[in-house]
Design a protein around this nucleic acid. Structure first.
Length: 835
RNA sequence: GGGUGAGUGGUGGAAUGGCAUACACGACAGACUUAAAAUCUGUUGGCCGCAAGGUCUUGAGGGUUCAACUCCCUCCUCACCCACCA
């Protein structure tokens, strides 16, 4: 059945050319010898069991870009590798007993095969696999460098904890606040964990977004919001009856006169001190315990009822000497600011809700200029700007002005200082897992925390370990791993058993590709400085924040320690949309995946590639349709037959077609028309590819050219297969399609009598002369509505055009009873008569 | 709640101030065929009309303009990301 519907022998063609490209080393680059470098990078994948067509979009786009750039004369570097550490393989090991390394390496070979079947080629000599020691050795090296600069440190942090499995859970392992494995309720536990001090780079990460001119706006906006810079004042409140002070951060210092209470995060260190031995102690302690047990997921729900308790203490408001009560409240986060706020219920909605619930006073200090505020009538906080009220010497000022005035006043009086806060928090890199790069740290009873010396890297993951059904990390129980000698004193010591977040692995892999085999250094700085920044990075928008921010951070760090000479790793970024099926994201867990293997068997890889690129704008989500695949297949058959029956194929093709036929306008009118179409198509496709990868419209333009070429063949009166213009059209079609459908393009290229690979040919230029038309069709509108069309010779004067338009028989009925007030002529496009 | 993006035929989509619905899918009709598949040709936004043609139509409403899918304002809906950020 499949045999019957075949339009061209894609099976033989595709494997033949895939082999040919490998033989000729089309995708292999010598990083030392090059003229115009172009580093085309696709985000390296996690090795999952099987790729579906949704994954394919990323690689097909990247492959098309790489092939196009080759034809534009670049030395294109397109490497590929695998982000091979991670939780899924470890979970599978716990379930099935198969070692993560075995399943991961198996998946990798499956994926390599799938890439190849798609015709997606890479410089495989440069493959990096993050779970292999020759790679993670250098991930550990980066850790040591950060540690050496004080940018890797340990502190306590809360984790999701399953008391029954005695294990840490990732957010995704928590289902309805319970452990996914045993359904025990998840609690919070604080553990000593490793962090990278990314906040040290917050300001530069934010400022340098300005340098990323070729990144999508929406990714930049997301990073901006994630870093979340806000400027404000840190106030030192004197605690009543004590010499201690309490620091609060606010962005709204203009509302300081309306502060009616202070709210602390439950974890705030002063909470315990305040209530110790007081009558409030029991109530507060109980509430704090309750809040702490709420998982991070629960606590981050905005709809959670506000709760709090009075601590019995007060601070003094420096601006008016008033006593302000200190409360503990669940809506305050320890991680942001100082973990304490001055609450101004009149002008902050959360404070307003809290004040209403606990009957705390509400004082208006900024009046709405449109309708004066009355406390009793307020249903919600007034958050806008306005006129200062009840604010002593600042009364009557604009709140936007007083925000600076009061800040200056605070600094003058020593009540506080202006500071900048970021939402960005330090990067928690510790994972209580097996399948990751071990953190190269040793604990010695005598010497304390000792970093593993560089010469002892890598700290190898022990292979012979037992995976327990509870999910506990097997590293803890591997005595040969844990027990070691202190590198400083030689005494008995133990190793850190936490491994690193896989985002650490992926934050520097793009540097390793340049010199993947190097074993004395992570990379060769000289070559890296030549090839980086990456000219084009392509990947899913889901990585818009974390991966891209971490990579930017690591790059800046490496620049600071003199390892690289640039501070942004990715010059151009393209984020493609996801492929949906039945309206939702294609994924194995949703059961709506489409396997490329079956489609390639029925239609060939070129069809799958063409459809994937034609499906819609690549930066947007798109719905997969099996019917659409057939359409792409039919189109390729149409092109194939055009090459077979058109002039120039095999024997009939004149050898010197370029020289003879590309010199001037065609022999007759039809040829000139077709040549105009050929060259406008080249222009359109080139601009679509250069200006943002608009594959969908590029392909539709080629479809139009194919349709017009068929029309031209059908029109030829002498029964021949057309002249030089048709041959030129066919050759152009093959070239313009080649980045998208490389196998069939190579085959047709050969049929056209060409010797070398089409990817060694240069991309066709367009001929401005061929584009020039001597007659234009102009639209005539009356009051903006199309009424007629006229053919106008190039160079006709506007006045003459107006005259023709006004006397046009189809236009006459619409203007004859009216006065023509204005005639607008848009050159070569339209005439609009206003009557 | 905040941020970002989107809303156009039966469907995927095109047009980013200048002919709305390119290109493709689907559907319908025809040619070829004993028949089917494949292929080729034609029709295909709604309404009125035998037709010529007219008229309405880009989520809703308003505005700017000779001209608005496109720019501005108000509102509605959906998707994604973040979410008590002081």
């Amino acid at each position: 059945m499949i045999e019957d519907t075949r339009q061209y022998p894609f099976n033989e063609i595709e494997s033949k050319w895939q082999e040919y490209w490998r033989q000729m080393r089309l995708f292999n680059v010598d990083t030392k010898e090059y003229k115009n470098k172009y580093y085309c990078l696709m985000m390296f994948p996690y090795p999952s069991a099987a790729l579906h067509v949704g994954h394919g979009r990323n690689y097909i786009i990247g492959d098309a870009v790489a092939r196009y750039k080759m034809m534009r004369g670049y030395d294109v570097l397109t490497p590929m590798g695998f982000d091979a550490f991670g939780l899924p393989a470890e979970n599978a090991a716990i379930k099935s007993g198969v070692h993560p390394e075995t399943s991961t390496l198996n998946n990798i070979s499956t994926m390599r095969r799938q890439f190849s079947q798609w015709g997606v080629e890479y410089d495989w000599d440069r493959e990096v696999v993050s779970c292999l020691p020759d790679y993670y050795k250098w991930t550990q090296w980066i850790f040591l460098k950060l540690y050496g600069k004080g940018l890797a440190y340990k502190k306590k942090a809360f984790v999701n904890w399953c008391p029954s499995c005695k294990t840490v859970l990732a957010n995704e392992q928590v289902v309805d606040n319970a452990c996914e494995r045993c359904s025990t309720e998840v609690t919070q536990k604080d553990l000593e964990q490793w962090f990278f001090k990314i906040t040290h780079y917050a300001d530069r990460l934010l400022k340098d977004i300005g340098k990323l001119t070729e990144w999508p706006e929406r990714v930049k906006t997301m990073q901006c919001n994630w870093i979340g810079k806000s400027e404000g004042v840190e106030i030192d409140f004197k605690i009543d009856g004590s010499s201690d002070t309490l620091k609060c951060f606010t962005t709204r210092i203009d509302t300081i006169f309306g502060a009616t209470f202070i709210a602390l995060a439950p974890e705030h260190p002063l909470v315990e001190k305040f209530v110790k031995g007081s009558k409030e102690e029991k109530a507060v302690a109980e509430l704090v315990r309750k809040m702490r047990d709420e998982s991070k997921i629960e606590r981050s729900d905005a709809n959670v009822e506000k709760e709090g308790a009075f601590t019995g203490k007060y601070v003094i408001n420096p601006v008016n000497g008033k006593k302000v009560p200190i409360w503990v409240a669940n809506y305050i986060l320890m991680e942001y600011g100082t973990g304490a706020i001055m609450a101004v219920p009149a002008h902050d909605q959360r404070d307003f809700e809290f004040a209403k619930k606990y009957k705390l006073p509400i004082e208006v200090v900024i009046d709405d200029p449109k309708s004066p505020l009355k406390v009793e009538a307020m249903k919600e906080a007034y958050m806008g700007e306005g006129i200062m009220a009840n604010s002593a010497q600042f009364n009557g000022l604009d709140s936007s002005v007083s925000i600076t005035k009061i800040a200056e006043f605070f600094e003058e009086k020593g009540y506080g200082k202006r500071t900048t806060q970021y939402k960005l928090r330090d990067w928690l890199i510790s994972r209580q897992r097996y399948w990751g790069a071990p953190i190269p740290i040793i604990y010695c009873n005598k010497c304390g925390v000792v970093p593993v010396p560089e010469k002892d890297l890598p700290v190898l993951l022990p292979k012979n370990v037992e995976f327990r059904p509870t999910g506990e990390s097997p590293l803890k129980f591997s005595e040969s791993f844990v027990n070691t000698k202190c590198p400083k004193c030689g005494g008995q010591a133990t190793r850190e058993t936490d491994t690193m977040d896989t985002f650490v692995d992926s934050s520097w892999y793009y540097l390793r590709y340049i010199t993947p085999k190097l074993d004395q250094k992570p990379f060769d700085a000289e070559l890296v400085n030549k090839w980086l920044p990456v000219d084009q990075y392509i990947g899913g928008v889901e990585h818009a924040i974390l991966h891209l921010l971490y990579s930017r951070f690591i790059t800046k760090f490496l620049k600071d320690i003199g390892c690289v000479g640039f501070d942004e790793p990715f010059k151009n970024l393209f984020t493609q949309g996801m492929i949906t099926k039945n309206g939702i994201k294609m994924s194995k867990s949703k059961g709506n995946t489409v396997s490329p293997d079956d489609l390639i068997a029925s239609y060939g890889a070129d069809t799958v590639r063409l459809y994937t690129l034609f499906i819609g704008p690549p930066e947007k989500d798109a719905e997969w349709s099996d019917r659409g695949v057939e359409g792409a297949y039919r189109f390729l058959g149409r092109v194939w037959r055009l090459v077979e029956k058109g002039p120039g194929s095999r024997v009939s093709r004149p050898a010197d077609i370029e020289g003879r036929d590309r010199q001037g306008p065609g022999k007759d009118k039809e040829d000139a028309t077709l040549r105009r179409k050929i060259h406008s198509t080249i222009k359109k496709v080139t601009e679509d590819l250069d200006g943002g990868f608009h594959f969908n419209t590029a392909i539709s333009a080629v479809m139009e050219l194919v349709n017009e070429t068929y029309d031209r063949l059908a029109q030829s009166t002498d029964g021949s297969s057309g002249g030089g213009a048709v041959a030129e059209a066919i050759e152009t079609v093959v070239m313009l399609l080649s980045p998208f459908v490389p196998h069939i393009a190579e085959e047709m290229w050969q049929k056209l009598g060409k010797k070398n690979s089409i990817f060694r040919a240069s991309w066709p230029p367009y001929d401005e002369k061929a584009l020039a038309a001597d007659v234009f069709t102009m639209v005539i509108q009356v009051n903006g509505r199309m009424r007629s069309k006229i053919d106008v010779p190039a160079g006709m004067k506007d006045d003459k055009i107006k005259e023709i338009a006004l006397s046009d028989p189809k236009v006459q009925p619409f203007i004859k009873d009216k006065t023509v007030r204005q005639v607008v002529v848009v050159p070569k496009k339209l005439v609009n008569i206003v009557a």
